[in-house]
């Protein structure tokens, strides 16, 4: 199952590396990643795509929330297999 994570990150030295490093260390492959500025120069917005089971997603989201620079994490999951008609499920 494909998941999209939207992460609000404090724009700190090394913050992006810590997010990417967390996924690498926890053996979770990032399929796509974009970083964008927000209206607040001290905050960046990361959009990250990965695939895995719901349990994998839940654990990596919880671990991401433990990173000190992370302000917020939201997920958008495509429910069902990748080719099925899309149903969207959001999680807090």
């Amino acid at each position: 199952m494909k998941h999209t994570l939207s992460i609000l990150l404090q724009n700190e030295s090394g913050a992006l590396a810590r997010v990417a490093g967390l996924f690498a260390a926890r053996h979770c492959n990032i399929d796509a990643l974009t970083v964008a500025a927000t209206h607040d120069p001290s905050v960046s917005q990361l959009t990250l795509v990965l695939h895995g089971s719901a349990a994998v997603l839940e654990q990596i989201v919880r671990q991401t929330r433990k990173l000190v620079d992370v302000i917020d994490v939201n997920t958008l999951s495509l429910v069902g297999d990748d080719n099925a008609p899309l149903a969207l499920a959001t999680q807090p």
Binding site: N11, L16, P41, S42
Partner: peptide, 8 residues
């Protein structure tokens, strides 16, 4: 991502 703009 490397600009340290954090203000105390």
């Amino acid at each position: 991502m490397t600009t340290p703009t954090q203000t105390a």
